[in-house]
Simulated scan of single mutants.
Amino acid sequence: MDKQSFFWRIMAGELPPPRAAQTLGAVFLHVDGEAGLAELQFDGKPEFTNPAGNIQGGFLAAMLDDTMGPALAATLKQGEFAPTLNLNVSFHRAAVVGVLTGKGRVIKRGRDVCFLAGELFQNGELVASATATAIVRAMTK
């Protein structure tokens, strides 16, 4: 964990949050960089709904990615980033317009390859879960 990394600079307000996170209405509730844990709240907006009125699965997948990613980003050194290589999502129940809470964690962090897991909840019920693989790389400008 390096407090000068881009993630911690975003958390300190020194850098703007990613636009995708802004679109999803992401708000950090808890981050533990030592343990590789993150908990976020998302705004399931009416603009995210499918014809049935439920939040479209792609937005739920993005919320999960934006939950697991910060759990890993909080562990990175300055000059590192970790793009997602693989994202596997399971949908457990429909999500409706409203607040969703994501919980993400680093399962195993190797030198380059990292394994992540996360869950997305609404009103205390599991909506979707995911696993992901990410790879640590040096940032280039």
Results as ranks from 00 to 15, higher is better:
141 K>F: 02
77 K>Y: 04
139 M>E: 14
54 N>I: 01
124 G>H: 09
17 P>C: 02
71 A>N: 09
44 G>F: 02
133 T>P: 04
114 C>K: 03
9 R>D: 04
119 E>F: 00
137 R>Y: 01
101 T>M: 12
9 R>P: 01
71 A>H: 03
125 E>A: 15
22 Q>D: 11
125 E>L: 13
88 N>W: 00
105 R>D: 01
49 T>Y: 08
33 G>H: 07
65 D>N: 06
25 G>K: 07
14 E>P: 02
6 F>V: 15
39 E>T: 13
46 P>Y: 01
3 K>N: 07
114 C>F: 04
20 A>G: 11
118 G>Q: 11
84 T>C: 14
90 S>V: 05
29 L>Q: 15
39 E>W: 02
38 A>I: 00
11 M>T: 10
50 N>S: 05
72 L>H: 07
100 L>W: 00
134 A>E: 06
24 L>H: 14
55 I>D: 09
41 Q>N: 03
109 R>A: 12
119 E>R: 03
132 A>E: 12
123 N>E: 15
110 G>Y: 10
115 F>E: 13
137 R>S: 11
102 G>N: 13
111 R>V: 04
78 Q>G: 09
66 D>K: 04
87 L>V: 12
57 G>W: 04
82 A>L: 07
59 F>W: 13
30 H>I: 00
83 P>S: 09
92 H>Y: 08
3 K>F: 09
117 A>L: 00
22 Q>N: 09
73 A>Y: 12
89 V>N: 05
137 R>D: 01
53 G>T: 11
44 G>N: 03
59 F>Q: 03
135 I>S: 06
75 T>L: 02
59 F>I: 10
44 G>I: 01
139 M>P: 00
82 A>D: 13
119 E>L: 00
123 N>L: 06
37 L>W: 08
83 P>K: 10
5 S>K: 07
56 Q>G: 02
127 V>R: 06
64 L>R: 04
96 V>C: 04
98 G>A: 05
48 F>G: 04
47 E>R: 11
126 L>K: 13
91 F>T: 01
59 F>G: 05
133 T>K: 15
62 A>K: 11
121 F>I: 00
7 F>N: 11
133 T>E: 12
50 N>T: 08
92 H>I: 05
126 L>I: 08
132 A>W: 06
140 T>S: 13
41 Q>P: 05
6 F>T: 12
136 V>R: 03
127 V>Q: 02
111 R>D: 12
101 T>P: 01
67 T>Y: 05
126 L>G: 13
68 M>C: 07
15 L>M: 10
86 N>M: 09
107 I>G: 01
101 T>A: 01
123 N>S: 14
95 A>K: 10
15 L>W: 00
61 A>V: 06
3 K>A: 09
7 F>C: 13
61 A>L: 08
76 L>E: 08
17 P>G: 07
25 G>T: 06
44 G>C: 01
3 K>S: 09
133 T>F: 05
37 L>H: 12
20 A>S: 08
111 R>Y: 02
51 P>W: 06
21 A>Y: 10
78 Q>F: 11
65 D>R: 07
88 N>A: 15
43 D>Y: 02
91 F>D: 06
121 F>C: 02
62 A>H: 04
